[in-house]
Amino acid sequence: MKIHDAETGEELRKNEPHVCEFYLDAFGFDAAQQVDRRIEAWAPTADVKGETVESGSLTLDAQGHGRTDDLTLPDGHYKLFWNFDGENGSAKHKVFWTDCEESDDKPGEPTEPGKPSEPGKPSEPGKPGEPGKPGESATPSPGESTPAQTTTATPSPAPSGQGGGDLAETGSSAPVGLLSGVAAVLVAAGGALMFWRRRAGANKA
């Protein structure tokens, strides 16, 4: 008797010791022979060694072949025993493992590719009269401080040598003072000249 995976065909005569859902396949027996079997939990996974977890009998066909229905057991280590009339020695046996955890792991479904995000809408230009937008002078609420206004100083025109600015005014007053000084000198010179003429006339007399 062999242990076969539930998806393995009955023509296979090789034992499969690692299965999930499985069946027992008997062949090579006498026609219409009856085979009794039992499955026991086995170390190292058995809580109670020798505990029978599945049992039954199987009547074979005219070719000495037969199979059980599909069976399932919790994941673990087990031992199969079978007996039949006319057997030689003790019961035959085979050990096997059931492991359905990996079989239940199905490949994950492909994730749906992310949709491209919608482009952002352009911001609307500021409307006149709305705070904080172009074309508007914000009026502060009562009790709210008004940010200081920045004044831009207008630079004075650079002094030029063509009569503009303070230097030009100073230059225009300089000739007046000079002319006054010259006039005073001329007056003094005229007075001195008249003095010398008078003195010369007196000497001649």
Rank of each mutant, 00 (worst) to 15 (best):
A91N: 11
A174T: 09
A91R: 08
W196K: 09
G143V: 01
K204D: 03
K94Y: 09
A46D: 12
L60G: 02
S156N: 07
G161C: 04
G126M: 09
I3Y: 00
G108F: 14
L12N: 11
P125C: 11
E124F: 00
N15K: 07
A46P: 08
C100D: 08
E11H: 14
E136M: 05
K127M: 10
P157E: 14
T170K: 13
E169Y: 05
D85Y: 02
R13M: 03
A41R: 06
S173C: 02
G181Y: 03
G171R: 13
C100W: 05
K92N: 14
G181A: 12
V176G: 06
P140F: 00
G89V: 01
D5T: 12
S123R: 15
E51C: 04
F195N: 01
E144N: 01
L60A: 04
E10K: 06
G66K: 06
P175V: 02
T59S: 03
G64A: 08
K49S: 13
D99R: 01
Y23H: 13
E51V: 03
Q34T: 15
G190M: 08
V185I: 14
W82R: 03
H4G: 01
L193T: 12
H65T: 12
D99K: 01
T150Y: 03
P122T: 03
K127E: 15
S145L: 04
D5L: 11
G66W: 05
P116S: 08
L71N: 07
P110Q: 13
P155Q: 07
F22S: 08
P44K: 05
A153H: 07
T170W: 13
K2W: 15
K127W: 12
S137Y: 00
P125A: 13
G50N: 12
E101Y: 07
E10S: 11
N88Q: 11
G132L: 04
H65K: 12
D75T: 10
E169I: 00
K106G: 07
A153Y: 04
G132N: 06
P131K: 10
A158H: 06
A31R: 10
E130Q: 14
T150L: 08
R38W: 15
A174C: 00
P159I: 00
G177P: 01
P159Q: 08
S117A: 14
Q149H: 02
T8H: 02
P119T: 10
A158D: 09
E10C: 02
S141R: 10
T52K: 11
A32N: 09
H65L: 04
P134T: 06
L12C: 10
L12A: 12
S57L: 02
A46W: 15
G66C: 06
H77K: 14
C100N: 05
P142C: 01
G181T: 11
S141N: 03
E10Y: 02
L186K: 11
P44F: 02
G9Y: 10
T150V: 11
P128T: 04
G132R: 02
L178F: 05
M1E: 04
R198V: 14
T8Q: 10
L24G: 09
I3G: 07
G129I: 08
G190L: 11
H93I: 00
S156F: 00
G114I: 10
H4M: 07
G64L: 04
A184E: 06
